[in-house]
Write a protein that binds this DNA or RNA. Structure first.
Lengths: 231, 231
DNA sequence: TATTAGATCTCGCGC
DNA sequence: GCGCGAGGTCTAATA
């Protein structure tokens, strides 16, 4: 990876046309040929960029460009889409290269998966007499985290989140609507289980007849056999 | 902006939980407190990040962490959402800071806006005798891209997309339903106009009596006066 | 390989 | 402030 801090202007032409006026920016060149142009603010999205696979050429400026103060011209092209990004560099304030190697990549959902496993083992946290049917119960629109039955044998669908937000309630609502059409399951009671449930999510859930259960991760972990073996 | 190349592991907990195993990465700290963790590949999206507004603290590792080889612990928190990002740093390979100043920002010319302008100017692409009523015709649920009248004076509502997908047909359907309740407009004919129309979208549109028109962007641009002045 | 639905979406506009 | 629509969306999973 090469990092360059430079005064530059940038032009992009492809699915749209865009221009960045002269200013100081970070140019990040990745080893796959891609390039990112970042300012010192905003979110994770660069001001401009070119996605791989693409090719970059480092050209000398022509006379007109030299007269304007341009010292280097980088041209990045993506052959498939005919996109082109041109970086016109005036002054280079920093330039360094680094070997990073390939990244092992992001592991998602560690805590949520663990919560699901623990709640399946401690299913009576949902209420006395509850029994587990199965985890990741499959429906046409995706798996419900946990399917259980209450003391009376009625179906209970559980959606588990680390943080209970409105979109989680919406997700559970979609599952419930579908499952309640199945005569083998209906009526299905919904349970929204999370370490923390936002007031808006709780209100929405209650409005839809969905029960909210706050999970104590540390307490659940303390009761878990496989965890206690670690100590 | 501060750029750090370091061996590090990263943990995020917020709307989801995620973990990055130990590897060499770029840590970009922006002046608004936000942080981006980039690898030497992939797209413009960082492996992990924290969006502003957020606060960062640089802590000393505890004994357990020190024994594991951790030399610094960065904790980035977003107060509003309770998100937290923890960067555990082992070795620092590069560390530099740079003044970038505020960026003038990106100037862009979107394709959809341009398509709308061009179609308004070349409204007879919808059929002989068509006349423009107005662009961005306002309804209670949002603006219809173009309102026109056909050769017989009947209202025509046009939804323009770069890529014609099912959701675009749904959007137009909602507008038509509303507009057809207005005695001044009814009956309103629907036209779904796009550079490319997906087969499923076309089928749905036809099923609902909505006409499909494929737009040739380059041809339309070639006919446009303001563009031809450039040559 | 193409299509579809989700995203820690982001970004911008209108209210 | 929130909600909605668009994005050079991107990205992963699936047919």
């Amino acid at each position: 990876m090469r990092l360059v801090i430079a005064n530059c202007s940038v032009d992009y032409a492809g699915r749209l046309s865009a221009h960045l006026p002269l200013a100081t920016r970070l140019l990040m060149l990745k080893s796959d040929g891609s390039i990112l142009v970042h300012s010192d603010g905003g979110s994770y999205k660069p001001l401009n960029w070119m996605s791989p696979p693409c090719y970059i050429t480092f050209d000398e400026p022509d006379q007109t460009q030299t007269d304007a103060g341009i010292t280097q011209v980088w041209k990045v092209t993506q052959k498939k889409t005919d996109d082109v990004l041109v970086v016109s560099i005036y002054d280079v304030l920093h330039d360094s290269s680094h070997e990073l190697g390939i990244d092992p990549g992001l592991q998602k959902d560690g805590v949520e998966a663990h919560l699901q496993k623990l709640l399946a083992e401690q299913i009576t946290l949902l209420g006395d007499g509850h029994t587990l049917v199965r985890r990741e119960y499959m429906t046409a629109i995706g798996p419900v985290d946990i399917l259980a039955r209450d003391s009376g044998g009625a179906a209970v669908a559980v959606e588990i989140k680390r943080r209970g937000d409105i979109d989680g309630v919406e997700q559970l609502t979609r599952y419930l609507e579908l499952m309640n059409r199945d005569p083998h399951l209906s009526p299905v009671q919904g349970v929204f289980a999370a370490q923390e449930i936002k007031p808006q999510a709780r209100t929405l859930a209650q409005d839809r007849g969905i029960r909210c259960v706050v999970l104590d991760y540390d307490a659940m972990r303390g009761l878990d056999d496989s965890d206690s073996r670690l100590f």
